[in-house]
Amino acid sequence: MRYSSIVQRLVYRYALLTRLAHWFGAIAVAVLISSGLQIFNAAPYLDAADRSTPTRRVLSIDSPADGVGQTTLFGHTFTTTGFLGWGSDGVGGATARAFPGWLTIPAYQDLADGRRWHFFFAWVASLAWLVWLISSAVKGNLAQMVLRPSDLPKLWPMQAYYLRLRREPPPHGTYNPLQKAAYTFVLLVLAPLIVLTGLALSPGIDAIAHPLTVLFGGRQFARLWHFLAMLLFVGFAIVHIVQVATQGFFNHMRSMISGWYRLREHESVGP
């Protein structure tokens, strides 16, 4: 059944568990990114190999001299003083440091505490993801969210609408085709991948599940994938926040807090 002709209709879109999972997940992801950068700072380079191999270095961030920060990506070196390599020490000064203090938890350099935060919130994020998966599968939200082959022809028209090349979005259900693509990729591909690449870094996990570490090319390679998956998460978060801010901020915030969403033109309920 379609409701697209009915404008300004309030629908109950998000179950309580889904909303809780969203906010716990959002906080956890923010903490995981900043504590992860704190952990990265202890060995600020990434190698495409199992063991550390300088000849297979993809990225390194260092400080060749006091007051200078540089970033080397695939052998090309860029000066990144003030941000990468040399930046805020988190306690009011500047120091040699890959990621600056305002991006890390805690702000000052402390690997032990960064690990504490990271592993605690890894549990929070994983449990939030599991709660979301089960509750949204039971409530039918998952079925509305997963990208289907029939959505593929609608992807470009939707993008054209966002680029203002098209006046109206293609008709769609609860989520538009680009939302479906983004949520399906982030929640069903990227989230499991970032957990698995993280686990592959642990010697205790490697000892009970060799194939996992081997699958990613070894421990240092897994560290590289884990970092890349983080960058994709950051990319998603930026797009997600911009979309929420520009496509009806109060409507979206209300729906993720109270569950009630005001349907707009061209929107309906369903897959």
């Binding site: 202890a42 060995a43 199992d50 063991r51 421990r219 240092q220």
Partner: peptide, 12 residues
């Protein structure tokens, strides 16, 4: 065996 340092590097 591989030696995995808490800082992030590994050596065999």
């Amino acid at each position: 065996t591989r030696h995995d340092c808490v800082e992030g590097w590994s050596a065999i």
